[in-house]
């Protein structure tokens, strides 16, 4: 298992290299031009051309890619074309809000969704099952921004329980931090509550119909023990998979949530950077995403072996 972990970590290098090259070439072919944006609307075409040259954007693809890789090897993610700030600094500024949003979202989702899914499967076919599933399905049949607006309108503007927007760093206190994050995490979490509850229910149903569970039931074992010891443990594999998979999707949802609630996170940094073609920032963020994704999924795979010893590596 240890050797496996090492192998997987080494394997992240080609993954990240592929992603980097893929994104770099995609951006290179794309016609967007940061020089035109820097120059502003009133600049003349000749000015734009000069700015492009001074940014080094007129150089060939391989030269630019090679230079970037060279800097990465030396631990330098480069500087933003627009702000002249180091990319690593810009990412650091944004890391905490996004991490907070994701952690809270996952925490809310898991604590709400797994019991929902378990109960639904246990009471399969009854009105409880249906009611839970309808509630869960509501969660992902409405786009995150609509949920966000409704939450903000109800709980911030009308009831005044939480702020409409913004982010307070954890260092300013747990209370203020949480009060800023509750609405965004719930808005973003809705879809994961639905997803995790459904998968939990589906796999629980699967497990509950397995022979050994039916045997246990027939033997008159305590219902709760069956549920926890046999069923939930076996259902854990797909649930963990979904959480691992959800990580990348979380980033997509985070972009929208961060816009709606004006949270200074990585999602907005990414979209802003893409729209402005701030190449060093896009590259840095994508590297970070693929790195954390690989790590999260490594953890997920390791958890598989924990929950289901039949899976070996």
């Amino acid at each position: 298992m240890f050797a496996y972990t090492i192998r997987r970590i080494i394997a992240t290098i080609p993954v990240m290299a592929t992603v980097a090259l893929f994104v770099f070439s995609l951006l290179y072919i794309a016609p967007g031009d940061p020089a035109a944006i820097i120059a502003g609307d009133q600049a003349t075409p000749a000015d734009v051309e000069r700015i492009r040259a001074s940014l080094g954007l007129d150089r060939p693809f391989l030269v630019r890619f090679g230079e970037w890789v060279w800097h990465i090897i030396h631990g330098d993610l480069g500087t933003s074309i627009f702000t002249n700030l180091p990319v690593w600094h810009m990412i650091q500024q944004r890391l905490e809000p996004t991490a907070s949003l994701m952690v809270l979202t996952l925490a809310f989702s898991i604590t709400l969704a797994i019991p929902m899914g378990v109960v639904a499967a246990w009471k399969h076919g009854t009105w409880i099952d249906r009611a839970i599933m309808v509630v869960a399905v509501m969660g992902f049949s409405v786009p995150v921004f609509v949920i966000g607006y409704v939450l903000a309108y109800t709980f911030a503007l009308q009831l005044d329980w939480f702020p409409v927007q913004g982010y307070t760093p954890l260092s300013h206190g747990f209370g203020p931090w949480l009060s800023n994050m509750v609405l965004p995490s719930l808005a973003l979490g809705a879809i994961y509550i639905a997803l995790i509850a459904r998968i939990t229910r589906a796999t629980m149903l699967e497990v509950l119909s397995q022979d050994y569970v039916r045997t246990a039931r027939a033997k008159g074992l305590d219902q709760r023990a069956i549920l926890y010891v046999h069923a939930l443990k076996n259902a854990a594999v797909p649930i963990v998979t979904v959480i691992g998979i959800g990580f990348a999707a979380l980033i997509g949802g985070a972009v929208v949530t961060e816009s709606v609630f004006a949270i200074p996170g990585l999602g907005r940094l990414t979209v802003d950077a893409i729209l402005r073609r701030d190449y060093p920032v896009i590259q840095g963020v994508v590297l970070l995403f693929s790195f954390s994704y690989v790590i999260v999924n490594l953890l997920v795979d390791l958890l598989y072996t924990l929950f289901d010893p039949r899976i070996r590596y």
Partner: peptide, 12 residues
């Protein structure tokens, strides 16, 4: 960037 959010922040 979101006009609805900016309006809410001003109202609040």
């Amino acid at each position: 960037p979101d006009a609805a959010t900016a309006a809410g922040a001003l109202q609040n």
